[in-house]
Design a protein around this nucleic acid. Sequence first.
DNA 1: CTGAAAGCGCTTACAG
DNA 2: CTGAAAGCGCTTACAG
Lengths: 344, 344
Amino acid sequence: MTRVTLEDVARKAGVSTKTVSRVLNDEPNVAAKTLEKVKSAIATLNYVPHAAARSLSRGRAMAIGLVVGWPVNSPYSSTLVDFALKASMQNGYRLALFSGENGICNQIVQAYLGKQVDGIILDTIPARDRDLISQLNSLDVPYVVVNPNRKGGHQYASFVGIDDQTSAKLAVDYLIKLGHKSIGYITIDTGLNHGADRLRGYRQSLTEGGIPFREEWVFRGALLPFQDGFSGALHLLSNYKMITAIVTGTDDVAMGAISAIYQLGLKIPDDISVIGFDDIYFASRIAPPLTTIHQPIDEIASTAVKQLIKMIDDPTTKPVDIVLPTKLVVRETCNPLAERTELQ
Amino acid sequence: MTRVTLEDVARKAGVSTKTVSRVLNDEPNVAAKTLEKVKSAIATLNYVPHAAARSLSRGRAMAIGLVVGWPVNSPYSSTLVDFALKASMQNGYRLALFSGENGICNQIVQAYLGKQVDGIILDTIPARDRDLISQLNSLDVPYVVVNPNRKGGHQYASFVGIDDQTSAKLAVDYLIKLGHKSIGYITIDTGLNHGADRLRGYRQSLTEGGIPFREEWVFRGALLPFQDGFSGALHLLSNYKMITAIVTGTDDVAMGAISAIYQLGLKIPDDISVIGFDDIYFASRIAPPLTTIHQPIDEIASTAVKQLIKMIDDPTTKPVDIVLPTKLVVRETCNPLAERTELQ
DNA sequence: CTGAAAGCGCTTACAG
DNA sequence: CTGAAAGCGCTTACAG
């Protein structure tokens, strides 16, 4: 079975190839009758334009590259991939995925030089690759950074992300509103600013709520989110029995904390309230479902895609820095303090 | 900055474009000196072949499509994406990702007709789409199904997957070897055969171990893995106090079960042993790390990619059905029965 | 409103 | 061992 080409369509419809091309690209200046003829020819022949031929003649790959940290199957990365895929398809672009520890920089530059992609979206981790950034800048590659590590020193990129501090404050404000005054915090050091910013939000909320900040109620994990959450909760709740709520830097930390709380023989939310951050796949699926700060990865992805396409279409587009709102998602891991059934 | 083309390289090296093409494609019959000249021209000009031009002239997209169930960020799907991406890059192919509930069939057929991809890898769920399958068959699209729902009635596809029954048996055999005789099972009905096959493995292991199968020790969940695992463990352990171990159909079910076990005030693995299936992202990251059956998604992905490329290269390739071995990964959720510190 | 010609950047036969 | 010509299937100016 040989391919149906635009020429076949033109022949069938009795028009020139240019006219078919006009119809395909929704260009104006086509008579209603001609339009009809061409459309029916396309339909009966089941014609689909050849992607590579189009790319070659247009000088446009019609694809964008998404670079995420390794591994792709982490809760956050995979969600970003999910929504970025959706958003780019909706905008008529294909998505090329990149990920990996080493050689990633070269891979991406090659993809751009080889016209496989017209622009790039970088997630937090790859955006810290100095080499990559400087190459993208010097080659004038259109790119957008998602959830940037602020203070990154980027010069030309557009940014799309959230305000970590304000968002974390949302979580703590909520607990305070529920009557909690003894609130622990578990953070992990990823080498990025997100953790520090979220911790700052915790502190700010306490201060505004007239609650003294206690350094010893902050547990700083070092490695694996779940396990740090686990050790953190164990540590905080064994040493400071007055703590009634725990805020965590990410949902997987919260999941670890929840595990530890159960192992201590305490109940959630009756004895201890827990609140997460991110709203990952598992957040709504564990028992009890986790109250958390929802990060709008869908909007982040679609905003990044649209901004990138704008930059591709018009290279003089000014860089922007877009901050999207997060929101508190109340599920079942936080109780008002008054309703607590027992005190230790 | 304008693109560097093959012609620029040819001019610089003082040879014809065909010769450059030879070098680029590792074809024979190039004099050592010529090879040297061309290679250095490529390097100094930083030349990268234009992907679309290559596709067009070769009649090959050099890309394969991966179709996974929605959402992509489920633990299993995202891991498959991860490894399929790696495998296709290593084989010189790009990966185009497809996912979504509706319109997916049309999207994929379009991508093939539009020469965006040379072949397709279908995961379990999309492979159940009758429409899609019959279209792929009638268009003679090369495709491979991963972890098929056996008895699917496919006629032409190649398959790559695991043996669910034998694998689940591995888990139960292990528990029996540890001395457990009262072993519960939590399964979920996904409408696929995997669950039934794994349950069959459980039953087979019991039988071979001389332990009677008790229908009431099998909990059949209906909806969300984690929550079903939670209710399942709650149900089994409250009603059948002699149960000392729980086997689950998937890791997320196990995670739910673990949650419930803690909430019942029991310890893992001291009081109850738990074993999962799949070895998802979280399996090694929760506390305690989950003993489970590892599904070799990396090998599955790379085998599928290689088989697909073979089919693309030679359309007369015979369909194959490749079954890859799983393995038991011992972590910290199972104890020998003898070591139990207390009995209820 | 419509079309003929040239070109995008490669590779594929074919010749020598 | 090397090259000149044609072609892959579209779109981009340009003309009318």
